[in-house]
């Protein structure tokens, strides 16, 4: 059964709020517990979005990242008190190792969230969000996204046409490829000018640009955004107050037992799992409706 992601059907602004907060939080707070929560939620969501096989292959691809990050930190960071051993006269410390693990956790969490981001935020949604800020640039983006497949199709067309009249015979593969490319480039450039003229004659630049898809900020968007803002604010408050903080140097100490820090971490758990909670509640609703039939 094709799984439908409820979170993807929300307003792009709500989705962007969720992703940007989670990404900034993961990059900003070097705290093993917070990063583990972030990574776990990202993995669960990626599992839901792209299936077990893809998620696991992505996770396995991260192993060299972990090794590299830990190694870089252990070799080049000589801070910290508990020395594990000496490597060519330089101390290798346990704190640097912990730091390496935490930063690799951060890296994987960020990459995992980006894989979810890529699945949820289609180019159209990103264009909707940023298009108002940079209209010419986003027009360029849209046109480019459309031109890339167009260009590849054109190359195939030209190549077939050249095969058809036997132009391939006698000339080398490289030369032939260059001539196909040259033709395609000329076609694309001329096409662009003609398209621009046609755009102009249809009123490009007279009015603000509109979107192909209409995104409406519905009541459920309001609810989800309010929840996101609430949890985000609670979590940010406890981070700013210094309740969720991790000290690496000179000795490793995690600070996370006071009431405020537990509240902050709990708020972060809720925040990260809002997309999945939405999906589960939607699934349960569907099961209930199905059982009534």
């Amino acid at each position: 059964m094709e799984r439908r992601d409820k979170f993807s059907s929300l307003h792009p602004l709500t989705q962007m709020l969720c992703f940007s907060y989670v990404l900034i939080m993961s990059m900003f707070v070097m705290h093993p517990v917070m990063l583990f929560i972030s990574l776990a939620s990202a993995c669960i969501y990626a599992l839901y979005l792209s299936g077990t096989k893809k998620m696991l292959s992505l996770l396995f691809a991260m192993i060299p990242v972990i090794i590299l990050t830990v190694a870089v930190n252990m070799l080049f960071n000589h801070r910290g008190e508990s020395i594990l051993f000496y490597l060519s006269g330089k101390p290798v410390t346990r704190e640097a190792m912990y730091f390496g693990f935490t930063s690799s956790l951060m890296l994987i969490a960020v990459l995992m969230w980006f894989s979810c981001y890529n699945a949820v935020m289609t180019s159209e949604k990103q264009m909707y969000l940023f298009g108002k800020l940079l209209p010419s640039f986003s027009l360029m983006l849209t046109m480019t996204l459309r031109l890339v497949p167009d260009f590849i199709r054109k190359i195939n067309e030209i190549s077939n046409a050249q095969k058809g009249f036997g132009a391939e015979k006698g000339s080398s593969k490289l030369k032939n490829g260059m001539s196909i490319l040259s033709t395609a480039v000329t076609c694309a450039l001329e096409g662009a000018v003609i398209r621009a003229d046609s755009m102009k004659s249809r009123g490009y630049g007279c009015e603000r640009r509109t979107q192909y898809t209409r995104f409406v900020f519905k009541s459920e968007d309001k609810t989800v955004s309010a929840l996101l803002l609430l949890f985000g604010a609670v979590c940010a408050y406890s981070v700013i107050k210094g309740a969720v903080y991790c000290e690496f140097y000179p000795t490793f100490s995690v600070n996370g037992t006071s009431a405020l820090s537990i509240t902050g971490i709990f708020a972060f758990i809720l925040f990260c799992n809002i997309p999945m909670t939405l999906n589960f509640s939607e699934d349960i609703k569907w099961q209930v409706i199905k059982s009534r039939i």
């Binding site: 480019t144 480039v185 694309a188 450039l189 000018v193 621009a196 003229d197």
Partner: peptide
């Protein structure tokens, strides 16, 4: 003040890069 033509040409160059 990019004209439509220039934006179109630049997006062709970008598409070439990406392709």
């Amino acid at each position: 003040g990019q004209k439509a033509r220039e934006v179109a040409l630049l997006s062709v160059m970008t598409a070439l890069c990406v392709a």
